[in-house]
């Protein structure tokens, strides 16, 4: 039972960090990143590959964040001068390209066999059966740090400019702010946060392969952000807990329904799709969000 609680804490915590990166992009800045999972994959693979080659893990994690941030900035520079649709199209394409690359660049990533047996932080210091408790502690600390950073940023001049760009780009430009540059920065920072969650996911799973990074993962983050209330970091964390509660409950219920495994996971996905549709139609501000914090409402 304790193991189960800790595993929920780990997944919900990791996905909360992942979704906080998206909240910075969508909630604060109104950016449609439909390929968030790509940056998680970049973080996970960069950390694992560097770690396997003897790079100290802290630097491996940072390298993944820098790489993901650079990719995010590049996609932003390509699209953010154009209409908002283009970022959505390009990021969704990017996430598929990254997955294809990881699948097919076998000499580096071992393709669909995936990678395992890589170093994890503090591994030598704790007994194997206690490791997840320690990792859960690390995840909670990282989550709190990311949360605190984003809260500070939201209240800083930088965050205020970002929100003003989201609400009315023309006004912020007329006040001499470089809206384009702010959006690129938000995209890069959010992507780096996704990479950080990817490193933690790799530490937790002990085995990664490209199928961990399907496009649907991006939209889990979207549901967490929207359900909790776009623009609210606390809401995003609650959204992560709610979504993981939903997954655990439906997995528990599966035992009582005579569906084939593929059909029951598909049924769960249909519900996910319907939740997204319902939220956008009836409650775009989410459960706890404020209408004025909504890039969608106008």
């Amino acid at each position: 039972m304790l193991d189960y609680l800790i595993s929920i804490m780990l997944t919900a915590g990791i996905y909360a960090i992942f979704a906080l990166g998206l909240n910075l992009q969508w909630g604060y800045s109104g950016l449609l990143n439909f390929g968030h999972v790509a940056f998680m994959a970049i973080g996970a693979y960069a950390t694992v590959l560097l770690g396997m080659n003897g790079v100290p893990l802290i630097f491996a994690v940072l390298a993944g964040m820098v790489l993901a941030g650079a990719c995010g900035a590049f996609l932003g520079v390509a699209t953010l001068r154009l209409r908002e649709d283009y970022l959505a199209i390009v990021t969704i394409g990017f996430s598929e390209i990254i997955r294809f690359l990881l699948l097919n660049w076998s000499s580096l990533t071992r393709g669909s066999f995936g990678l395992y047996g890589y170093p994890r932080p503090l591994e030598g210091l704790v007994a194997h059966e206690d490791y997840n408790i320690v990792l859960a502690g690390i995840v909670i600390i990282v989550l709190l740090l990311v949360y605190a950073l984003l809260e500070v940023l939201a209240k800083s001049p930088w965050g205020r400019v970002l929100k003003s760009v989201r609400d009315d780009e023309a006004v912020s430009i007329s006040l001499g702010k470089n809206a384009f540059s702010y959006k690129v920065q938000a995209l890069a920072l959010g992507s780096a946060i996704a990479a950080l969650s990817g490193s933690l996911l790799a530490f937790y799973l002990q085995y990664i392969n490209p199928n961990n990074f399907q496009p649907i993962e991006t939209f889990y983050a979207w549901i967490m952000v929207i359900m909790g209330g776009s623009g609210s970091n606390r809401g995003t964390i609650v959204g992560a807990i709610l979504l993981w509660g939903f997954f655990s409950t439906t997995r528990f219920l599966e035992g009582y329904i005579s569906f084939s495994p593929s059909a029951s996971s598909a049924a769960r996905m249909v519900i996910i799709g319907v939740i997204l549709i319902g939220l956008m139609m009836f409650r775009p501000q989410g459960l706890f969000g404020r209408k004025e914090d909504l890039a969608v409402g106008k």
Partner: peptide
């Protein structure tokens, strides 16, 4: 437009 695009993702998944 952005709300409608997010919704279209939900339709696609469903």
């Amino acid at each position: 437009r952005t709300a409608i695009m997010i919704l279209s993702i939900g339709v696609s998944i469903a």
